[in-house]
Nucleic acid binder design. Structure first.
Length: 216
DNA sequence: ATAATGATTGGC
DNA sequence: CCAATCATTATT
């Protein structure tokens, strides 16, 4: 298997404050190796969820359950959860052990394995009419496209079949936009924190992300 | 054991 | 706008 990306993220890469790690993830490439084939996409939108104090986080109040367990371990592992009875979402565990922080991957730019992604998403590739962003412009869409489900829970993103790669220099801050997170209105004060980050003007930013952007 | 609740999406 | 659909969680 040959990857052309610049370099694999090592274990130490994840040892940085969640605020920094979230922004560092933008522009990086996520690769999923699977018996059916491999897929890759560039991260263009993320959301951070910070520890026990964040009312929007699954780990709010230090809640530790079977599902949230991996968030309490070391950073750099996959936190996959199931929502709305039909969707999976992929997060990168962040923060030192004991700090239950995570970063939700909200949108990708498809790079490799387009056919497989389209197949998994039940979208037909009919030439020019397909907007590739449609494959991965949402947290559950990209999980589906990459073939991520419960069996990817807890994988080490620096040493497993699900990997993160550096591919370009870190994005300059002027290319990164920030705003409130999506669908966390129940979180009161925390719903206002500008903890969603995306690549400014990137076409593959999630639909809701774009709506919110134009609204403000 | 049982009921409430979504870090969403796609279709009407 | 709203139904779909079920794992996880809290509650009885």
């Amino acid at each position: 298997m040959e990857y052309s990306w610049r370099g694999l993220a090592d274990k130490e890469f994840f040892d940085q404050p969640t605020l920094d790690l979230a922004r560092s993830l933008l522009g990086m490439v996520i690769v999923h190796d699977h018996p059916l084939g491999w897929c890759a996409g560039r991260i263009v939108e993320v959301e951070m969820y910070q520890g026990p104090e964040d009312r929007a986080a699954h780990s709010y109040g230090g809640k530790i359950t079977e599902r949230t367990r991996v968030m309490y371990g070391p950073p750099g592992y996959a936190y996959v959860y199931f929502v709305y009875g039909m969707h999976y979402c992929l997060n990168v565990v962040s923060g030192p052990p004991g700090r239950p922080e995570a970063i939700l991957i909200r949108a990708l730019e498809p790079l490799q394995g387009i056919e497989l992604m389209a197949q998994r998403r039940h979208i037909e590739i009919d030439g020019a009419s397909l907007n590739l962003c449609r494959l991965t412009n949402g947290p559950a869409k990209l999980a589906q496209a990459l073939g991520i489900s419960q069996s990817e829970y807890g994988l080490a993103l620096f040493d497993s079949r699900l990997l993160l790669y550096h591919d370009q220099d870190p994005l300059p801050s002027q290319d990164i936009a920030a705003g409130p997170r999506i669908n966390v209105n129940y979180a009161g004060e925390a719903a206002l924190y500008p903890w969603r980050f995306w690549v400014k003007d990137h076409p593959c930013v999630s639909v809701k992300g774009k709506v919110q952007k134009t609204k403000t």
